[in-house]
Amino acid sequence: MPGEAIAPSKPLTIVEGQTLRRLDRSDLDAVVVLDSPAFGTDRRRHLVRLFESSICYGLYEGERLLAYSMRRRFGRGHVVGPIVASCDEDAIAVTHPHVKAHAGTFLRIDTHFGSGPFANFVHQSGMAAYDTVTTMVTSDKANYGASGPGKHVVYALASQSFG
C-alpha cells in the first residue's frame, strides 16, 4: 500500500509496562526469535542485511520483545517491512513512528491485511491499497493469518518490494 503518509491523528498509547524503542544490533537475537515462528524459518542472514539499511522499532514488555518493524529507503521514498506482531495494536505501535517520521513523503507497506485495525491504521495514514499482496511460502509453519497471544504474525513483508 503506497502513498503519501499522513501523520497519525491520534497519539500513540502504549500499554503500561510496555516500552517502544528504536532497535539496534544488540536486539537482533530477540528479533530472530520473534520472527522465525511467524515467518516459518530462520532468516537471520536476511534480517542482518535489513538491520544494516533500516531504522527499526521494537515493542518490549520488560526484556521480552513483543513486536518489531523495519523501515528502509525504497524507490521514490521508504518502505516499512517486515512488521511482526501478535496483535493489530502491537503492529500499529511499531509502525506508528515510521508513519509519523515520513508524514508528507512517499511511504509503502506491503501487507495482506485488507481489513481490521491494522489495515484501518494504514489506510488512515494515507496509504491506499495499490494491489493485493499474495504471500508465497514453502513452509506450512509460516503465519500470515490469525494472530493471538504468543502467536506472532507477519503483518508486512520485507521482500515484496525488493528488486
Score class of each variant (00 low, 15 high):
residue 130 Y to E: 13
residue 71 R to M: 08
residue 127 M to K: 02
residue 101 A to E: 15
residue 125 S to N: 05
residue 109 I to R: 07
residue 29 D to H: 03
residue 59 L to Q: 03
residue 23 L to T: 03
residue 139 S to T: 02
residue 58 G to N: 05
residue 135 T to Q: 07
residue 4 E to K: 09
residue 103 A to N: 14
residue 115 S to N: 13
residue 51 F to A: 01
residue 110 D to V: 06
residue 79 V to Q: 07
residue 15 V to Y: 12
residue 44 R to Y: 04
residue 85 A to M: 06
residue 136 M to A: 08
residue 35 D to T: 00
residue 72 R to D: 07
residue 33 V to S: 04
residue 71 R to I: 05
residue 70 M to W: 11
residue 63 E to S: 01
residue 150 G to K: 00
residue 53 S to H: 02
residue 81 G to K: 05
residue 1 M to V: 09
residue 56 C to N: 14
residue 124 Q to L: 13
residue 144 Y to T: 06
residue 64 R to G: 00
residue 3 G to E: 06
residue 107 L to G: 05
residue 92 I to T: 04
residue 5 A to D: 05
residue 142 A to S: 08
residue 51 F to Q: 01
residue 109 I to K: 05
residue 156 A to Y: 13
residue 95 T to L: 09
residue 100 K to E: 11
residue 4 E to D: 03
residue 66 L to K: 02
residue 78 H to N: 11
residue 120 N to T: 11
residue 52 E to M: 13
residue 143 N to Q: 06
residue 141 K to H: 04
residue 121 F to S: 11
residue 59 L to P: 02
residue 126 G to M: 13
residue 88 D to F: 11
residue 84 V to A: 00
residue 114 G to R: 12
residue 56 C to Y: 10
residue 144 Y to G: 04
residue 31 V to A: 04
residue 147 S to R: 04
residue 113 F to Q: 05
residue 52 E to G: 15
residue 71 R to V: 06
